[in-house]
Design a protein around this nucleic acid. Sequence first.
DNA 1: TCCTGGATAATTTGATCAAATTTCTTGCCG
DNA 2: CGGCAAGAAATTTGATCAAATTATCCAGGA
Lengths: 219, 219
Amino acid sequence: MDEDGRKIPTHEVTYARLRDMILFGVLAPGQPVTIQGLTAELDAGMTPVREAIRRLTAEGALTPQGNRRVSVPQMTEAVLDQLAWARLAIEPQLARLAMRRLTPGLIARLTALDDEVNAAIGAGNLAGYLRANHAFHFTLYEAAEAPVLMDIAQSLWLRAGPSLRLVMGRFGSSGLPDLHAEALEAMRGGEGEALSAAIARDIQQGVDQVRLALSEGAF
Amino acid sequence: MDEDGRKIPTHEVTYARLRDMILFGVLAPGQPVTIQGLTAELDAGMTPVREAIRRLTAEGALTPQGNRRVSVPQMTEAVLDQLAWARLAIEPQLARLAMRRLTPGLIARLTALDDEVNAAIGAGNLAGYLRANHAFHFTLYEAAEAPVLMDIAQSLWLRAGPSLRLVMGRFGSSGLPDLHAEALEAMRGGEGEALSAAIARDIQQGVDQVRLALSEGAF
DNA sequence: TCCTGGATAATTTGATCAAATTTCTTGCCG
DNA sequence: CGGCAAGAAATTTGATCAAATTATCCAGGA
């Protein structure tokens, strides 16, 4: 049941669960995804699982292998370049649009989410970090009220998701600037361009980490 | 069977057919899309139709109506703004990337496609125009070999598709510049930036037409 | 190396159940 | 007496499942 007392259909729940598995690093790149394997794991029938897989394939989160198998895509140099370019095009714009509608309450929520991010980093908690980081970015983007751009951003994150688990290892050790803090500072000052720039640099930083891991043959 | 001798599954064929119906103006904005209605029309079982609908919903080509029905989305000012911005961000970049890999053979094919576009315009043939125009843009973009950006572009075109049928009426009458011709000129000269700019203006021109129709309450 | 079963998994169908919409009825009020 | 509205039945449509079908892969043998 959802908040309106309506029953949420099984295929929606199944989709959300599988999506989160991809987004938050439960599924490794290259891992095969079978319908029958997931019916057991997600406790659903074939039809809902099937639909979830198809939806995620349409969003680029899973790749069909020609011979009617589906797997979690491997990250490649070429794909990373495209992801980086597209994210740098879309997400700073979402941040810019969001700026106009930010309320003090929202900024407080974003601050709390950033605290969660830092706590997770401190604790070396990968799943917690990925969740909090995703929540930080998307509650900000949500404020832009631009569903078309949001869908694109979500698809781009889904494509990047499985690779991020391998980046975590390298990342307590680095003295990188905290760009979420800079973003929050810009929000409080109402500076749209500074916010947009901070988000852009945050994206760039993440992409650089993945690129580094990729060049070291981590995948 | 496809070119490798493999059988194409029904749900792929069904998806392609329904997608083209949306892309090429067969389905009107606001029109409800029912599974059982399509099983008859597309000559397929429930499951393939169901999957096609889900995939297209995930791509933004169809919208769920809350009460588990699905329909072709209405165009709004807000969505058009986002579509315009995103298309102007993505597609000129695809054109730029494509430039480096264009061969004389490809340019010849694109020239032929543009002839088709103009012939369809001359004949007032809406379906032919939409098909040829789509083919022109996407065979160009295909050359960029950037599947991530291609998927985004495809999704954006799907969202715009149903609205384009209503724009055709107004458009023999206008002395608009032929931007495909300019694009082809840039390709022949190997000028990436000029190509990118021509594509951008082509997009802008199309968006302006839709915006005009929208402001006149055509939807 | 090529061919031939056999195993595994995806595809598809048809049936069944549940939800939502529409239609029809019925009773009340003007 | 006529119209309107509320509620109930019927119809339409979506969701889910399980069985039957079909394709692909892999191993073993010619």
